[in-house]
Each structure stands twice: as structure tokens, then as C-alpha cells.
Computed example of a mutant assay.
Amino acid sequence: MDVLSDAIIAMRTGRPHSTRHELYAPWGMHFTSGECAGFHIVLRGSCWLIPPPPAPPIALSVGDVAFVRGESSHGLADSLSTPLTEVPLDRGDVPYTEVRGEGSGPATVVLCGAYMLDQTRTHPLLSEVPQVVHLPAQVGSHSSLRAAVELLGSELDRPLPGIGAIVPALLDTLLLYILRAWFEQRSHHENATGWAAALNDSAIVTALTGIHHDPAHPWTVEELGTRAGLSRAAFARRFTALIGQPPLSYLTWWRMTTAAQLLRESDAPLRVVARRAGYTSEIAFAAAFKREYGVTPGRYRRPSDKQIEPV
């Protein structure tokens, strides 16, 4: 188990998808806000990313990667003076599409992708990621990310049998490489704080790994501190300073998050979900879940069910 992968898996609500745009100036696209986080990769030519105000426009060149968290709308255009045309970021369950524009101006090829994520349950790790992450193409930097971009571009340039399974897997890989690259950059800053520092703190990572690997375990601050090689007090101070909440508060949050994922993605009986969340009593689990989500576990699993359900 690792925290970055778990954070993405817990938030995912659908399959990722991508579109290869071959565009000829003048062109402009406006992506609406919503449940999607997205990325843009310039494969040929250049363009402008227009983030939400007051952030300034960002010039993108060949090989540049831009990640947009999705809470706000944004634009992509050949020129800052070109009008933007609405483009829905969500294309359903189709893993990839191709769009060829009209025009006679300079050509730009952009690979755009979207991830369906539950923005109402953002993992605190991802809440530190800025609205827009720009990773310029630089020789020798982010080699794994560049390799994933090359593979994805190759698949979409020449579709072959198996592409329907390969593209979503590559999109998931690409997202993790983008986030990893940003956190690595942040961790190299002298004054790195928060999750960027936590992911490079072996003591905190050890404790987080224990929580994520076995959330049902009756963890105590002392036991987590022992795993981390720190005294109870020193561990609690460091964990709270970097993670933003005390160890047992994060444990409870993660238990409820994993329980919600299990309810959403499986038909496991409530007693099983409760046990995996560290509760021996279904009633106690249901009460804790309702405090966190505002609904009972059964209603969360079947949001369209209008019948009154016993706790």
C-alpha cells in the first residue's frame, strides 16, 4: 500500500478517458468545471493554457504537460485573442476519441484527458496540489512521465487491438507520474511542508503505510510512534504538523473513506464493511458513518432508494 495510489483509488468514480485533438489555427476550447480533473499534453506545435483568473495564461510547447484539478473551468487556445468554444471534459465510458479541426493555420496536436474523481471527498494529499500544475519538457527531467506520454501518444496515433484496455491503464499511470513529479519538485524546496514533506519523511511514511495497509487494526498513537521509531509525543507532533490533523483523526477519516469506497464498489454485507473499517458493532459503525457523510451506509450505497431505512 502507498498513500498516493490509495488517494487516487479512493476518489475515483469512473474510467479515465482521453481525446487527441489535431487543430489548425485559429482554435480555442473552453473546458467546464465539474467532477473531472484533466491534463493536456502538447504533441506538436504550441498553445496557451488559460487558467481561472487571476492566474496568468501559460505558454505550452511540445512535450509540456499541464494538469488541471477540475474545480474551475479553463481554456486552451492557439492565441490569447481567439474565442473559446465549449468542450465537455466528460466523454462517458469511451476510453479515447480523436478530433480533427478545420482551418488552414499552423497545426497543433494536443492530447487531453480526464479523470472522474469525487471532488467532495478529496484526499488531503491532493488538496495541496495547485489548481494548475505545469511540467515543462526538459531534457533529463521526469523520464518516467515522458515515457508514459510517449506510450500513450503512440497508442492513439496507431490504434491496435487491446487499446481499449491499454489506454485507461496508461492514463492512470500518467496521473500518478504527474502527481509524483509535482510532489518531488516540492519536496526539494528547503521549506517544504505538508504532504510534500511527509512523503519524504520515513517515520511518517512508515506510520501512514501501517494505517493504509490495515485500517481495521486498533491503532494507538503510541503503537504508530513505535513503528515510526519515535516517542509518542514526538511522533504526534510531527504527524500533526505535516499531515494537518492528529494521527487518530486521520485514521478515522481514512477508515470512513475506505468504507465508503467498499459500499460504492461492492455488495459486501454491512458487517463486513464495518469490520474492515475497524468496528466490531454494525450500529457503532453506522453511527460513525452517518456523522461523517450525513447518511446511513445503506442510503449511501443506494442513493436513489427513497424508502426510510433503519440504522
Rank of each mutant, 00 (worst) to 15 (best):
L199C: 01
A216K: 10
A198C: 08
P161K: 07
L199P: 06
L160P: 00
E190Y: 03
G194I: 01
L174E: 04
H213R: 11
A198Y: 10
W182E: 02
V205N: 08
P218C: 10
E184V: 13
L174W: 06
L176M: 06
H188I: 08
L171F: 00
D201W: 01
I163S: 15
I204D: 02
G162W: 10
A169W: 11
P168L: 12
G164E: 14
A169K: 13
I211H: 06
T193G: 00
W195P: 02
L176D: 00
L176K: 03
V167R: 12
P218H: 07
G164M: 00
N200C: 13
V205T: 15
P168Q: 10
I166K: 12
A207W: 05
A197M: 11
S187I: 04
L176W: 00
T173L: 12
H189C: 02
I166P: 01
P159G: 14
L175H: 08
H188E: 12
L176A: 06
E184I: 05
A196E: 00
D172E: 13
L174R: 09
G164L: 05
H213G: 14
H188T: 15
H188N: 14
Q185Y: 10
A165N: 07
N191V: 04
T220A: 03
F183K: 01
L179P: 02
V205L: 09
L199N: 03
I163P: 11
H189A: 02
T209N: 09
T173Q: 11
L170A: 14
G162A: 05
L208H: 09
T220W: 01
R186T: 01
I163H: 15
E190P: 02
T206M: 09
A216Y: 05
W182R: 02
I211Q: 13
T193I: 00
I178A: 14
L170H: 15
I166M: 08
H212P: 00
P168M: 01
G210H: 13
G210Q: 09
A165M: 10
E184S: 11
G210F: 04
A169Y: 11
S187V: 02
A165V: 04
D172L: 12
I211R: 08
G210E: 10
H188L: 14
R186Y: 02
E184A: 10
P159R: 15
A196F: 07
L176S: 00
H213D: 08
A192S: 14
D172M: 09
P215A: 09
S202V: 13
G210R: 13
G210P: 00
R180T: 15
N200D: 12
R186L: 02
A169S: 15
S202Y: 07
L160H: 12
V221F: 04
R186S: 00
D201K: 09
T193K: 07
T193Q: 07
L199Q: 07
A216I: 08
V205P: 01
P168E: 09
F183I: 06
P168G: 06
N191M: 04
A198S: 08
P215S: 04
